[in-house]
C-alpha cells in the first residue's frame, strides 16, 4: 500500500505582532541597549530589577528609576547539566537569582561557570554583555563569577 503524502509546514511559536514596551519595561530595555541597568523603587523603598510597572503589594504605579550596579550576589541557583535546545548556553551552566549591587530584589538570568563546584549561594557575579546590544533581556549574554 502506498504511503500517503504527509503534509508538513514549519511553525514558529511566538508573538507575530509588534508590541510597544511602554515607559517602564521600555526604559529598562533601552538601558540594556546602552549597557546600563535600571531598577525601580517600590512603595516600600525596595529597588526592583528588572523594574515593574506596578507595585505587587499596593498596586501603586511606580516611576522612580534607580540605576544599579553590574555586579551582584547569587541568592539561589541551580546547575543545568544538560542544557535544553532552547537554553541560552549549549554546555552545562547555572540559572541564578542574582541581587545586583544597589538592588533589593533578585533577577533571574544565567551564569557561566566551568563546574558546579565553582558556584555557591553568596558568590559574586558580573554582567557579560552581548557583542551587540539591541534592547532585549538577552543583551545580558550571561553573568560570570568574579573574584576567583
Amino acid at each position: 500500500m502506498a504511503q500517503p503524502d504527509v503534509l508538513s509546514q514549519a511553525f514558529e511559536l511566538g508573538f507575530t505582532y509588534t508590541r510597544s514596551t511602554g515607559p517602564v519595561v521600555g526604559r529598562f530595555l533601552t538601558g540594556l541597549r546602552d549597557r546600563r541597568i535600571f531598577g525601580i523603587r517600590a512603595s516600600d523603598g525596595r529597588v526592583i530589577v528588572p523594574p515593574m510597572e506596578y507595585d505587587p503589594a499596593t498596586a501603586e504605579a511606580l516611576d522612580e528609576f534607580v540605576e544599579v550596579g553590574q555586579q551582584g550576589e547569587i541568592v539561589s541557583w541551580c546547575w543545568v547539566k544538560q542544557p535544553r535546545a532552547s537554553h541560552p548556553m549549549d554546555t552545562a551552566f547555572a540559572w541564578a537569582m542574582i541581587r545586583l549591587d544597589g538592588a533589593d530584589v533578585p533577577m533571574i538570568h544565567c551564569v557561566t561557570a566551568a563546574a558546579e563546584e565553582d558556584l555557591a549561594t553568596g558568590a559574586r557575579v558580573q554582567v557579560v554583555w552581548a557583542a551587540e546590544t539591541r534592547g532585549y533581556i538577552t543583551d545580558i549574554r550571561c553573568f560570570e563569577l568574579i573574584g576567583e
Binding site: 514596551t21 519595561v25 530595555l29 528588572p50 541551580c78 543545568v80 535544553r84 532552547s86 537554553h87 541560552p88 540559572w95 533577577m107 533571574i108 538570568h109 544565567c110 532585549y136 533581556i137 538577552t138
Partner: peptide, 12 residues
C-alpha cells in the same frame, strides 16, 4: 520581556 526570551524552564 524578562523571562520568556531566556527560555528558563519550569524545572530550573
Amino acid at each position: 520581556y524578562y523571562l520568556a526570551p531566556l527560555w528558563v524552564d519550569s524545572v530550573s
